[in-house]
Simulated scan of single mutants.
Amino acid sequence: MSFLINLKTFTDSRGNLTVIEKIIPFDIKRIFYIYGVDKSVRGGHRHHNTIQAAICIQGKCTIFSDNGNESENFVLDHPAKCLIINPEDWHTMHEFSEDAILMVLASEYFEPSDYIFEPYD
Rank of each mutant, 00 (worst) to 15 (best):
K29C: 14
S2N: 08
Y109K: 15
S107V: 09
I85C: 01
P112R: 12
H94D: 11
V19A: 09
K22S: 14
S71V: 00
G36P: 10
S40P: 01
E118K: 15
I101F: 09
L76F: 04
T62A: 12
Q58T: 10
F64Y: 15
A80P: 02
Y115M: 12
T62Q: 13
C82S: 07
L17S: 01
I51Q: 01
A54Y: 02
L105S: 00
C56Q: 03
S71N: 14
T18D: 09
A106L: 07
I34Y: 07
A100H: 05
Y109V: 08
E21H: 15
A80T: 05
Y115D: 12
Q52I: 04
V104K: 09
G59I: 08
H47D: 01
E108I: 09
D12Y: 00
N73L: 04
T92R: 05
A54Q: 00
N49K: 12
N16S: 13
D99F: 05
D99A: 11
A80C: 12
P79F: 04
F26S: 08
E88L: 11
T11K: 11
E72C: 05
E72S: 04
D38C: 09
I101N: 08
I24M: 14
E70C: 09
E98F: 13
T62C: 12
P119S: 11
P87A: 02
E95K: 13
E98I: 10
P112W: 11
M103C: 14
N69P: 07
G43C: 01
I55G: 01
I85A: 00
H78I: 02
R30A: 10
L105A: 01
K81T: 00
A53T: 04
Y33M: 14
A54C: 09
R14H: 09
S2M: 03
T50P: 02
M1F: 05
D99S: 14
C56D: 04
E21S: 13
Q58A: 10
T11R: 08
N49V: 04
D114C: 10
P112N: 11
I55V: 09
S2F: 04
G15K: 03
P112L: 08
A100F: 03
K8M: 10
I23A: 13
A80I: 03
K29Q: 15
G68D: 08
C56T: 01
V19E: 13
T9L: 06
F3P: 01
K60T: 10
M103V: 12
F26D: 08
A106K: 07
L76D: 03
Y115K: 14
F110L: 13
M103T: 14
H48I: 03
P87M: 05
L17F: 07
E21L: 12
K29T: 09
